[in-house]
């Protein structure tokens, strides 16, 4: 890794914006690969990248930094990334990194941000917690199933359907939504939980879910899914 060119790339980052020459930042990509076997150098690179997020560099430059932290970010980058979760322009790219950083601190930061956010920004964080299958967020997500914002309630249902634990299934079973979109999301998430429970040998719990969706009041394809699930619970061919 050539430190001079890396310095030049960090310098270029200060004025980087849409339309700028992307090759000026190439040394940053190269440094990601070059530091793979050098923990100290990787740590220094990460620290330097995370620090740029608190400076006045452009949205485009922060976009680039978040993409790099998606690859090399650790718990050390989480505070800088989490500070962007309430920024409408940068929240997505913050999650772009946080969603993929395996450190539990990344999920914890998003859980902590959840009550502070509203609207789309809250929806985004809910989605990322779901993708991470973050079981610790189940109580918070369960509480959001009845949120007056249908987008938030839908997002919570989808996230619980991604997490698929018995607790997630129970939360979905306890919701009583009337909004059509939320109901569809809750139905799909419940069916996903049932599949997971059945695969894990919890037939009775899966069967209880399937029975809820097998009635004549359900759309044809939902009733079909539930009926197939009931047959699967009984060990019969689908």
């Amino acid at each position: 890794m050539n430190l001079d060119t890396l310095d030049q790339a960090f310098e270029a980052l200060k004025t980087y914006d849409w339309g700028a020459d992307g090759s000026a930042l190439q040394p940053l990509d190269e440094a990601v690969v070059a530091t793979r076997a050098d923990a100290a150098a990787r740590q220094a690179l990460e620290k330097r990248l995370a620090e740029t997020l608190t400076t006045g560099i452009s949205r485009d430059a922060k976009d680039v930094v978040c993409r790099l932290l998606m690859v090399i970010g650790t718990a050390a980058s989480v505070p800088a990334l989490a500070s962007l979760l309430a920024d409408a322009e940068l929240a997505h790219m913050a999650r772009y990194a946080l969603e993929r950083i395996p450190a539990p601190e990344a999920a914890a930061a998003m859980r902590a941000a959840l009550p502070q956010l509203s609207g789309l920004l809250r929806v985004g964080v809910i989605g990322s917690l779901g993708v991470r299958r973050d079981v610790e967020s189940v109580p918070a997500l369960a509480a959001l199933l009845d949120d007056p914002d249908p987008a938030v309630a839908c997002a919570a249902a989808v996230a619980l359907g991604a997490i698929r634990t018995p607790d997630a299934a129970a939360a979905l079973a306890g919701s009583s939504v009337s909004h059509a979109e939320v109901r569809r999301a809750t139905t799909d998430a419940s069916l996903a939980c049932a599949e997971s429970l059945l695969a894990g040998g919890q037939r009775a719990e899966a069967l209880a879910i399937y029975r809820r969706f097998a009635g004549e009041d359900q759309p044809k394809h939902v009733k079909l899914a539930a009926t197939r699930g009931i047959l699967a619970c009984a060990g019969q061919s689908q």
Binding site: R100, V123, G124, G130, V131, A155, A162
Partner: peptide
Amino acid sequence: AEANRFLDRARREPWQL
């Protein structure tokens, strides 16, 4: 863990899977 970071990418709100 390094490769698993590339399994997916965060979707811009409100889109999710």
